[in-house]
Simulated assay, not measured.
Amino acid sequence: MPFNDKIITLITGANGGIGFELASQLLADGKNFVLLGSRSQEKGEAAVQELKKRSLPGTVELVQVDVSDEQSIAKAAGEVEEKYSRIDALVNNAAIAGETPPTHSLPRRLTAAFLTNSTGPAIVVESFAPLLSKSTAKTPRIVNVTSGAGSISLRLDSENPHQQMKVVPYRMSKAALNMLTACQAYEYGPLGWKVFAFCPGFTASGLSDMNKEELGAKPTREGASPIVDILAGKRDGEHGGFLHAGGQHPW
């Protein structure tokens, strides 16, 4: 089959923002096969068509998956297994800010944020781990796209320029994702897999109305490019770490 000699990477939430840009950067290399994960079938198809219009050497296909829905995740894993039998890397990129609509109570916003930002990635990895175990790559990799907002140490640091930012659901769910990363590093590290939490920083994306370049967010390409390096094995020595572009955050 044409994908047997390619590196297959599943990216959740890849119909826009950092996920879409990561897909585009990976597809610049013909050895890469991107499974573009999207909750919306329509938006996912549009994203795939846009990438194909760019005539990039890599291969891209859509995987419809809602990471807040256990049945959707199971269905997606089954379809990927049937079509491709394996994946070589997984990027848990899908996320929500958990602040909208603001009229929702804190419990409702917390539940929504945890379901997408931490519970979802846990189920995605559990569901796709059997396919990662069949990877033909020397080193399967998992990247959980997190945030410095989930660092407990930075939250308590009075010198942190973002300390005044509340976003309690987002902070708590990303802190949980960081713990999930540590658990996955412990579980899968002995198998030779590499697992990372990666914070892209304040990046232009569809995460919230604040994530715009005119409001100071870095270009999406800058937020995505370090993930390409991680997937290429350039930071394998930092397995289990809470990475950002220039080093590591404190937990």
Rank of each mutant, 00 (worst) to 15 (best):
Ala94Leu: 04
Val143Tyr: 10
Glu99Trp: 07
Ala224Phe: 09
Ser135Lys: 11
Gly30His: 06
Thr119Ala: 14
Thr100Gln: 13
Ala94Tyr: 06
Ile96Asp: 08
Val48Met: 05
Leu51Lys: 02
Asp209Pro: 09
Gln248Leu: 13
Pro101Val: 05
Gln163Pro: 01
Lys43Ser: 15
Arg221Lys: 15
Leu115Val: 12
Leu207Gln: 05
Ser208Phe: 09
Arg171Asp: 00
Leu180Asp: 01
Leu27Pro: 11
Gly98Lys: 07
Leu110Gly: 09
Pro250Asn: 07
Gly206Cys: 05
Gly241Ser: 10
Trp193Glu: 06
Gly44Val: 00
Glu126Met: 11
Thr9Ser: 03
Arg109Tyr: 04
Cys183Val: 09
Gly19Gln: 02
His249Lys: 09
Gln49Asp: 15
Leu243Pro: 12
Ser151Met: 10
Ser135Pro: 08
Leu62Thr: 12
His104Ser: 12
Pro130Ser: 04
Lys31Gly: 11
Ser105Leu: 11
Ile73Pro: 09
Gly233Lys: 04
Phe198Cys: 10
Val48Pro: 03
Val67Arg: 03
Asn117Trp: 07
Leu27Arg: 08
Ser68Tyr: 04
Gln71Leu: 11
Arg39Phe: 10
Glu70Ala: 15
Thr220Leu: 00
Thr12Arg: 02
Gly19Glu: 09
Lys83Trp: 01
Gly206Glu: 15
Phe198His: 14
Gly241Glu: 07
Gly37Leu: 02
Tyr188Arg: 07
Leu36Asn: 08
Phe198Leu: 09
Arg171Leu: 00
Ser55Asp: 15
Val91Trp: 10
Pro169Val: 00
Leu90Asp: 04
Glu222Val: 07
